[in-house]
Design a protein around this nucleic acid. Structure first.
Lengths: 205, 205
DNA sequence: GTCTATACATGGATAGAC
DNA sequence: GTCTATCCATGTATAGAC
């Protein structure tokens, strides 16, 4: 039984790094980069300032660590759904269902990323979100094109991709701003279906 | 010729209030509320701090003035398009065309509002964006329902409204983040058409 | 690795002269 | 109405002891 295992076994104690990471994630998400102070982060983690600077170098360091961890998680999810079988329509439903669900369970982090990505740089260090965003975009576009080749869809692939992503973003945004009025997974499915209906190829009846 | 007219006639001089307003609008939009300092605002306006506090009370005062002016402008536009004639499809195209165009010409302000509305409260005073957002949402929903009654559309009115708004937001967001890849008005029209196609009622052929 | 104490900068806001 | 000078709180970051 080494030292790490001993530390892990204690009461509810995780390592200091983990506590700092968790505290920073919550505060950055709830207050934004500028408004979340180092003082508050260390207070919530139950340590003092030098501990944070020892482990993460500076405020920017722990900020990057938090964002990177969240994005890695997101990419792993998308990657997992990417290689499923089935019709293009089914796979798009699965993909967006997964994304909707993931965002739904991490609204705070989504809110933070959203404001950093789309909003003015609020004194926050630049961070590369594009990799993850492009990943999702390209995955959707790929499935749409496969659907075209298979004769499922017709129309402008880029326009269809944007319409699909827009439907997803709109439902997430609604949840961010008016949780009471937000749609659930079924409601999101109906919004998605409006778009999918506009994509499908007409068949002689 | 009164005193105001004389002041207006001078070189490029507008009133001090107007210069402060313009400087604040730019800086809030480019840096966010917290990161835009009073010092920078007054420097850009070519005056000193007490002037700002004399005219607007405090930082929050000029911030509210900037946002209120922008929202009033937006609501006036939506109101103007609201009472047009034509098919539901045509009116939706006109409405979103107007909104897309307006946002396009004020990207900085849109960016600011976006981050305040969807993002974490970055130390910024609370501000009521809901009035304007609901206004657009309700206008779209109303036209959609009229389209249903007229036999133009079929389906879930709420889902269709969200799909339309999502298409619009997606194109604006794209412009905010990747101007190079952004779609123009025609491209936006195509995205809108994907959704509208999914809304329309099938006719026997 | 973690603490106390502190240096140092910035930012919001005001007093008081003009 | 506008200026100069200044107050004071907060925030990032570090020195140095343990």
């Amino acid at each position: 039984m080494n030292r790490t295992a001993v530390a892990r076994a204690r009461t509810d104690e995780s390592t200091v790094r983990e506590k700092l990471h968790a505290a920073a994630a919550q505060l950055f998400a709830r207050k934004g980069y500028a408004a979340a102070s180092v003082q508050e982060i260390v207070a919530r983690a139950g340590v003092t300032k030098p501990v944070l600077y020892y482990h993460y170098g500076n405020k920017e360091g722990i900020y990057r660590a938090v964002l990177a961890a969240a994005l890695d998680d997101f990419e792993a999810r998308v990657g997992a759904v990417e290689m499923l079988a089935g019709s293009a329509r089914t796979r798009l439903h699965r993909l967006f269902g997964e994304v909707f669900d993931l965002f739904h369970r991490h609204l705070d982090v989504v809110r933070l990323m959203h404001s950093i990505y789309y909003g003015p740089p609020q004194g926050a260090p630049a961070f590369d979100f594009d990799r993850a965003v492009f990943r999702l975009h390209d995955t959707v576009l790929k499935i749409v094109r496969q659907g075209q080749k298979a004769g499922e869809f017709q129309g402008d692939a880029q326009a269809m991709t944007l319409a699909l992503l827009g439907a997803c973003n709109e439902c997430i945004d609604l949840e961010l701003v008016h949780p009471k009025m937000a749609v659930d997974a079924a409601g999101f499915g109906r919004v998605l279906d409006v778009v999918l209906r506009g994509m499908r190829k007409k068949v002689r009846q």
